[in-house]
């Protein structure tokens, strides 16, 4: 083992999650790499009350896209070609996490410098997961409603805010 790995292993504040990059949220308010899927929520272009819930499974690249009321997306014909919502979802994920992390999660290796992930994917149809993904989005939004706290929270010493280290 290298000394660098040893130092990382014996460090209480060892960084694990790279901070996400800022991105515009209006079109794709929610993206996550979770439960073995790249999944998220895409705003409808025409109806503010409606959102599309889209996902791609990590290894099989199974696509699904439905409205929050469980209607199948008309743009996802047959399931092997992405609709515009899935395209927007992948674009947002790459903006948020970087190409490398998204590609690793989906277990693909796009050529270096390739800005588009789709040529590396082998899409197939997948069972829909709209209910799970949508409730994950609601849990995400619910954080904004949790009241602030003035408790001393000593364990947060393990979670330093970062982002301005020397480059």
């Amino acid at each position: 083992m290298t000394s660098e790995v040893v130092a990382y292993e014996r460090h209480s504040a060892a960084p694990v999650i790279a901070p996400v990059r800022p991105r515009k949220l209006a079109k794709v308010p929610f993206v996550e790499l979770a439960e073995g899927r790249l999944q998220g929520v895409v705003s409808s272009g025409s109806d503010v009350e409606r959102v599309y819930v889209s996902s791609i499974t990590a290894a099989e690249h199974g696509l699904s896209c439905n409205t929050n009321n469980n209607r199948p997306c008309g743009g996802l014909g047959g399931g092997s070609r992405p609709c515009n919502h899935l395209k927007a979802l992948v674009e947002a994920a790459v903006a948020q996490y970087g190409m490398e992390r998204v590609a690793r999660y989906l277990k693909v290796e796009p050529p270096a410098g390739e800005p588009d992930l789709w040529p590396a994917l082998r899409p197939a149809a997948a069972p829909q997961r709209a209910a799970e993904v949508f409730s994950s989005f609601l849990r995400h939004l619910a954080y904004l409603e949790v009241p602030p706290s003035t408790d001393p929270l000593p364990d947060l010493q393990w979670f330093p805010a970062t982002g301005r280290e020397a480059r």
């Binding site: 800022p22 991105r23 949220l25 995400h140 954080y143 602030p148 706290s149 003035t150």
Partner: peptide
């Protein structure tokens, strides 16, 4: 002494914008 104010947020709220979540103080 130390004094602490904390807010819940989500990952896409980060950097200087995170202060907005502490507007109650």
């Amino acid at each position: 002494v130390r004094t602490s104010v904390a807010a819940a947020k989500v990952d896409t709220i980060s950097g200087p914008s995170a202060w907005r979540m502490l507007a109650a103080f």
